[in-house]
Design a protein around this nucleic acid. Structure first.
Lengths: 174, 174
DNA sequence: ACCGGTGGTTCACGGGCGTGTAACAGGCGG
DNA sequence: CCGCCTGTTACACGCCCGTGAACCACCGGT
C-alpha cells in the first residue's frame, strides 16, 4: 500500500515521531531541540533531505508503509542505544537491563554482583571466586559451572559474559 | 531522473559503496566486516531493509539520483565523525575503539601496545619484536604470523594495520 | 629480460592448557 | 514428594602460539 498522507500511518509505538517536510518545518525544529527521534516524510517535489543528527531519518513520499515501519524501527533502536542502558542488580536478586529482567539464584547473584558493578571491564576469576564464595570456593571448576549457569540465565537479555583468557570475564552488551 | 540500475550511479566519491540487495548479499557481508560505509539499493520487490550499523543506509529503487547523493553525503559525514576516535589498550588486554572492543591474546596485546601508543605513526619491526618478545623472538616469521593474527582480530573494528615496506607497520583507521 | 634475494603474507599442523558443559548426586524449602 | 539450587567429576572443545613451508610482490644486478 502506497503512503502519500503521513496522518494515515500508525507507527509501532509513539516514541518515534513522523513529521512532514517542508510543510511542518517548525514542528521539526521543536522535535530536534527536544531530541525526539523523528522520521521526516519528504514531499515528492521537495529537495533531498539532510538529517542533522542520528536520531533523524527521512523517506520520500510516496512510499510503502512497510518501509516507513522499517525506518521507524531503526530509529527506535538507535534511540535505545543512545540512552545507554546499564544493568542493575537489586538486593532482591532481580537483575534488570532496560526493559528486560530476571530473578537470579543466590549464588548467581553473588557472582553477578562484581560483574554488574564493573560493567564493561574485566573482573578476574579470583575476584569472582571471592564474591561468589566468601568462605572460600569449594572445588576447582565450580566457578566455571556457576558462570555457565549465569550465562544461560542471561540468554535473550542483550547482555553476555565474555571471557578474556587468563584474565577473567567481562559483562557487556552482546 | 529516476534510478533503477545502480550501475548507472556515480557517487561523489568512492568512500561510500553502493550495493544492490538482495542481489549482492555476499558483497554486503564483506563490506560490513570491513566497516566500509555503504548504501544499500533495495530492489523494488524486496522486503524493507534493516541496517546493522550506523555506517549503513538504504533506499528503495527506483529513486531519484539526487536522493542517493543525499544519503551518500550523510553516510560520509558519519564515517568522518567515527574516524575521530582513537584506540585504547587496557592492561586487561581489552582493546577499545569507539563502541567496538575485543579481547586480545597475550602475545597480541604485547604487539598491539606500541602500535596503539604510536597510533598513526610507523613502528619498526624491531620495536615490534622487542615489545612482543622481551626475551628475544623465537624464529624467523613468528612476528609476521602474530601480526597476521592481530590483523584478523581487528576485522570489523574500523582499525587496520598497514605495512610500510622495509620501515614497519602503522595502526590506522581503515 | 632473466634471475636471485629480500621482505611480507598466509596456510596447515600440533602441543598445551584454559575453559565450557553434560551428567549425576545431595540438600533445602514449599 | 517434587522442584529448584548447588557442588563435583569427567570430558571435550577451542584458543593460544610456535613452527615449517609455500607463495607473492618488489628490487637490484648481470
Amino acid at each position: 500500500m502506497a503512503v502519500t498522507d503521513p496522518t494515515r500511518i500508525e507507527p509501532d509505538g509513539r516514541d518515534v515521531v513522523l513529521v512532514r517536510w517542508p510543510a511542518e518545518d517548525d514542528r521539526l525544529d521543536e522535535l530536534r531541540t527536544r531530541a525526539v527521534p523523528r522520521l521526516v516524510l519528504v514531499a515528492s517535489h521537495a529537495d533531498p533531505f539532510s538529517p542533522v543528527d542520528d536520531l533523524e531519518d527521512w523517506v520520500r513520499l510516496p512510499t510503502a508503509e512497510a518501509d516507513v515501519r522499517a525506518r521507524v524501527r531503526t530509529l527506535r533502536r538507535r534511540a535505545a542505544d543512545a540512552s545507554e542502558r546499564i544493568p542493575e542488580l537489586a538486593d532482591d536478586r532481580l537483575l534488570r537491563y532496560g526493559c528486560w529482567w530476571a530473578a537470579l539464584a543466590p549464588a548467581e547473584a553473588r557472582l553477578a554482583e562484581p560483574l554488574v558493578a564493573r560493567f564493561g571491564a574485566v573482573v578476574s576469576r579470583s575476584d569472582l571466586a571471592r564474591a561468589g564464595w566468601p568462605e572460600g570456593l569449594p572445588s576447582r571448576n565450580s566457578l566455571d559451572v556457576q558462570l555457565g549457569r549465569l550465562r544461560r540465565r542471561l540468554e535473550g537479555s542483550g547482555l553476555a559474559i565474555r571471557t578474556v583468557r587468563s584474565r577473567g570475564c567481562v559483562l557487556a552488551a552482546s
